[in-house]
Design a protein around this nucleic acid. Structure first.
Length: 510
RNA sequence: GGCCGGAUACCCAAGUGGCCUAAGGGAACGGAUUGCAAAUCCGUGAUUCGCGGGUUCAAAUCCCGCUCCGGCCUCCA
């Protein structure tokens, strides 16, 4: 029997391809993911993209690959207004500083957070730490890898030297030039492949661009689509010396420089949100291939479609804009959030709903109960090789095949549920538990199925007192009093369960 | 206008030419259980796959046209 092969959609070829790594031994995989910009907390849409990359990485590991996964944390402030494509407007890091200063003043941010709102590095560091926390909570493996090897989540501000070298190389190879305004631009006409990833070929761009490119700016460039590599600007909030004057790098440059430095000039996989396809990834390809002379930068491009919230586009004005920590504060378990964000196929828009979150929670609880029962039955036992394969072990090949079909997680989950419904009493519990663990190795839900600690409102004490009252009432069969207490608990947003071991409670997520 | 992804029951979602009078989960409903609930367990659910044509012995699946939703076309995961 041959090993399962991962069939994965490649944005570059717009078709499903059988994945095979560059590694001649077919074992090691190089994977670069575009990570967050850290001038705010990451929202659930950001995490859908990062979590899908994590599912891909975990699937590759399930198939036996050894994945070197890099995810950047962009700490170079990009511009708020890029209308002229060349660094106009205000630096986002400066905007974030003002917002932080206001949050501190209004008490939204704990007073003990010592952070200078005028120091862009401090702002970036603050949000980068928040991101790493959220990432570990949601089970992004790369965030754990980083604890052993910090380089796996690199910061562009520490790669300025490499970026400058890259620009010099592009100039030397006639792919870049210094414009009349002193800005270094990539010459898109020097790179015929430009537009292959996004479909935005130079001809298509010409038809669509129109009013968005100012004539004034055009005078400085050879072609409308030429993009900035280095901008001299001695007044900018974050700036570094360079052969073209003190200034800052173009915003596509960092990924090309860091991917090459950490993974090589040609890599296996590159991921991001669908909005990254153009211009970001298109420009990365031009820069990387222009500098290296290779035909490919990443051989395989993986893009996750956007997340909707309750049927609407997520936006701050609609009030449906959530960060991961907003959800944890509501009492949502990291496991449920993780599953809700990845269970819809990555190439479809996903609609995030509170109902969906509740569905996921029930689903995870059911799997967890089965797993706990198997672990209890397996305790102290060794695998029974003679026993017939049980439901979960039998479902494992289907689970793997489903993931190999362009990460068909829904079908993989159905295989688990079918196994759950079958009688496994004759199976070896050790082997069954192991099979479930392998499935969870991709899903990553069992180990994070608990609400985040936090009792700021003193709810625990109140609930405890009410439960004691109710238990006493029930002991004397005073049902009216018992039900009254239950209503009071419900008003506090607490649901209770009477079990053989007494009454348990949980916060109702709404 | 150019390029791309999608449309399956109340909701999420599988299915890629015959095994489909369409998987799995949730909700709902009925039953068991419970002081009553909740949770749990058992059962019920689309003769139909956005719309209109076509190909075929056979279509949710292939082809053509249309409608709608979403994304990108130099802020964005």
């Amino acid at each position: 029997m041959s090993a399962p092969v991962l069939s994965l959609y490649n944005t570059l070829s717009k078709s499903l391809e059988s994945f095979s790594p560059l590694d001649p031994a077919g074992r090691k995989v190089t994977f670069y993911s575009c990570g967050p910009t850290v001038y705010d907390y990451a929202h659930i849409g950001n995490f859908r993209s990062f979590l899908n990359a994590d599912i891909l990485r975990r699937t590759l590991e399930l198939l036996g690959y050894e994945v070197r996964h890099v995810m950047n944390i962009t700490d170079v402030g990009h511009m708020t207004d890029d209308g002229n494509a060349d660094g106009g407007g205000e630096d986002r890091m400066a905007v974030a500083g003002r917002r932080l200063a206001e949050a501190k003043k209004s008490g939204k941010l704990p007073a003990d957070v010592a952070i200078d709102p005028n120091d862009p590095y401090a702002i970036a560091e603050f949000y980068a730490q928040a991101f790493l926390e959220d990432s570990k909570t949601l089970g992004l493996k790369v965030a754990f890898d980083r604890e052993r090897d910090p380089g796996l989540m690199p910061r562009p501000t520490r790669y300025i030297r490499e970026m400058i070298l890259l620009v010099e190389r592009l100039i030397a190879r006639n792919h870049a030039y210094v414009g009349r305004d002193g800005v270094v631009y990539f010459d898109v006409r020097s790179f015929p492949q430009y537009g292959k990833l996004s479909g935005n070929t130079l001809d298509n761009l010409k038809e669509g661009a129109g009013e968005r490119i100012s004539a004034e700016n055009q005078a400085n460039k050879r072609n409308a689509a030429d993009f900035m590599l280095w901008k001299p600007d001695a007044t900018h909030i974050m700036r570094w010396p360079s052969p073209w004057g003190e200034g800052y790098p173009g915003w596509h440059l960092e990924c090309s420089a860091m991917a090459a430095g950490l993974l090589g000039e040609e890599i296996d996989l590159h991921s991001g949100g669908e909005d990254n396809i153009f211009p970001h990834h298109e420009c990365e390809i031009a820069q990387s291939c222009g500098a290296s002379g290779h035909t490919h930068f990443a051989r395989h491009w993986f893009h996750t479609r956007h997340l909707m919230v309750e049927g609407d586009k997520m936006s701050k004005s609609k009030g449906n804009f959530y960060t991961a920590r907003d959800m944890f504060a509501k009492g949502v378990t990291p496991a449920a959030l993780r599953l809700e964000l990845v269970r819809t196929h990555y190439r479809s828009n996903s609609n995030f709903t509170m109902q969906g979150l509740a569905d996921c929670q029930r689903q995870i609880d059911r799997w967890s109960r089965a797993y706990e029962a198997l672990k209890a039955a397996a305790a102290g036992k060794s695998p029974d090789r003679a026993a017939a394969a049980g439901p979960f072990e039998s479902a494992l090949p289907t689970f793997i095949d489903s993931l190999c079909d362009d990460l068909n997680l829904a079908r993989a989950m159905a295989a688990m549920n079918e196994a759950l419904g079958r009688d496994g009493s004759a199976a070896c519990p050790v082997r069954e538990a192991t099979a479930l663990e392998r499935m969870n190795g991709v899903l990553g839900v069992f180990e994070r199925n608990a609400v985040m600690a936090g009792d700021d409102d003193g709810l625990e004490g109140k609930v405890k007192a009410l439960l004691e009252r109710r238990t006493a009432a029930r002991a004397s069969k005073n049902w009216a009093e018992s039900d009254k207490v239950r209503d009071e608990l419900a008003a506090l947003g607490v649901a209770i369960k009477d079990g053989p071991q007494g009454t348990t409670w949980s916060r109702v997520v709404k």
